[in-house]
């Protein structure tokens, strides 16, 4: 074999090796979570709340799994993520459309820069801000406060993904719509936004999956609750918050793995759906 072919082979092996290495952490995480968490997952896990520390201890002593589950976390995460998305999606879409349509104005440059900064703000700071802005004035920890923190976190993600998606649309699409004598507004609403649906939806799903696993912004805002709570003005739990609380209770540590496995699967499903949607609705 000539030197060139050997070099080529070596390069190929090295590239494959390192690509393989990136898969290892994810595979290892999933394996670990499944191994330690699967036996906790049953119907009760989704419909009941965690037991108190004594019951958990007694159950474990007698060789059973910890009774109960994370229903309070599931409902709380659902409520807060939905509320955050309801706020962030319209704001983010409009801002993103504006940035892609008028990229050269001073205002849009400023918005773009600030969006980048906002994306870099540590999530715990968003939690503290929401505490100061919402929890303090309202006098109570609440799902509203938690969703405000998550909303601020989602916003730059959706703005950016909307902007990028809209910029990727072929420019002749806009021209051909305007050439039919339509107004700018209807071109955006009836042609550009529907055409970029796949990208927009993917961006929203990814933003949701990103904030779904956040703990820090919820610690000072939603606080947590051991009951299933539908009242948005009362303290509410969330799955990642529960994981943190289980960690602080030696008798409930067993619940950590099942909760982690569940949220991990949820986020993986969102991500897989997102990439499917992106592929299916891709505009040529």
């Amino acid at each position: 074999m000539s030197r060139r072919i050997i070099k080529d082979k070596v390069a190929k092996i090295v590239v494959c090796l390192f690509s393989g290495l990136t898969v290892i952490p994810l595979a290892a995480i999933i394996w670990e979570l499944v191994k330690k968490g699967y036996h906790q997952i049953n119907w009760d896990f989704f419909t009941k709340v965690a037991p108190n520390t004594l019951d958990a201890m007694l159950a474990q002593r007698s060789g059973q799994i910890i009774p109960g589950g994370i229903a309070n976390g599931i409902t709380g995460t659902l409520i807060m993520v939905v509320m955050a998305a309801l706020l962030a999606v319209p704001c983010g879409l409009f801002a993103g459309v504006y940035l892609s349509e008028k990229p050269h104005t001073g205002f849009s440059k400023a918005v773009s820069f600030l969006t980048d900064l906002l994306q870099g703000v540590p999530s715990i700071i968003l939690g503290i801000i929401a505490y100061a802005w919402v929890v303090k004035p309202m006098g109570s920890y609440s799902a509203i406060a938690g969703s405000i923190a998550l909303f601020i976190m989602m916003l730059p993600l959706i703005v950016r993904s909307t902007e990028e998606t809209m910029k990727m649309l072929p420019s002749n699409l806009k021209e051909s719509a305007l050439a039919l004598g339509s107004s700018y507004r209807s071109v955006i609403l009836k042609v550009l936004l529907p055409s970029s649906f796949g990208g927009l939806f993917t961006g929203i799903l990814l933003a949701i999956s990103r904030v779904m696993g956040e703990t820090a912004p919820l610690m000072f805002t939603a606080l947590g609750s051991m009951q299933v709570n539908w009242d948005v003005t009362a303290p509410t739990n969330a799955i990642p918050l529960l994981i943190w609380q289980f960690y602080n209770d030696p008798n409930l540590v067993g619940m950590i793995w099942a909760s982690s496995l569940f949220i991990m699967i949820l986020i993986l499903i969102l991500n897989i759906t997102a990439s499917r949607v992106a592929r299916k609705w891709k505009i040529r």
Partner: peptide, 26 residues
Amino acid sequence: GMVFQRPNPFPTMSVYDNVLAGYKLN
């Protein structure tokens, strides 16, 4: 009316709606 270099029917619309696009958009 204008016809462009590259064919560019609206990707989200059916054949039927593409023909009527001018009316719909206006």
